[in-house]
Amino acid sequence: MLGKLLKHELRATGRIMLPIYGATVILAILANLSIRLLDHEVGNLVRIFAVLIITVFAIAIIAAAIMTLVLMVKRFYSNYLRDEGYLMHTLPVDVHGLVWSKMIVSCIWFAGTFTVIALILALTGLFLTGTSLNEVFTAFPSWKEIIAAMHKEGIGGGDVALFIAEMITGVLLAGLTTCLHFYAAMALGHMFSKDKILLSIVFFVAISIVMNIAVTGYGAARLESFDHPLGSIEELRGLVNFVHGIIAEGLFIEIVRAAVMYAATVIGLKRGLNLA
């Protein structure tokens, strides 16, 4: 059933996100042409128009990022906590499927928006500086040299792969916790019969505060217990292992944070559901 929920959710969100991506790309092309145009002798009116397009492009990039976030919030809210909830909560699926389908699809669009914006900005940068793609690729050998140098110090491909895996996990968890922070706040706020939105905001802030206190407290306690102060690490190998350890611990904290907020979301949707 998760597959069907995902299919439906992708269809519902795709009809909004894909046109946004399309519009952003078109604006990017127009903006690039406008930038070129400004290098030439043109009339004031054309100049103003060109500047306007560039401004709109800049706004569009920010808007695309904000829309991705807003859509994540709005889909959960209108689909599960408003009238459409009468349809969604009476489907023969469990509440986990409901939460995961929204989270996964939101993360897909997070990644999509990031990719679209990064590509547009990179290509615009290349276009403006007149750099050809060839030049970019020829810059790569120097990276190889760096890796070779690292290898000499005992940092192998395994470490690089591990760092990449840690980074991907971290990014993924960041996506999930972003969603869950909003989901948990809304699900808890809507358990009440009145002031649902106000209470959702209150829960959002409360979750932030509690999480911050918990993580800071944990960090401070951990810092005191370090028997291995940073200064004493001389060898690179040791430092690398130390960093892996820190990252692993950070990821673990993120997982705990996500699990707590996930549990709050599920409880709010299952036991506390109270559709108006």
Binding site: D83, E84, G85, Y86, T90, L91
Partner: peptide, 13 residues
């Protein structure tokens, strides 16, 4: 839920 068909007094479409 698989065997219950429900018409709420809300527009849910």
């Amino acid at each position: 839920k698989a065997i219950v068909s429900y018409l709420p007094d809300k527009e849910y479409l």
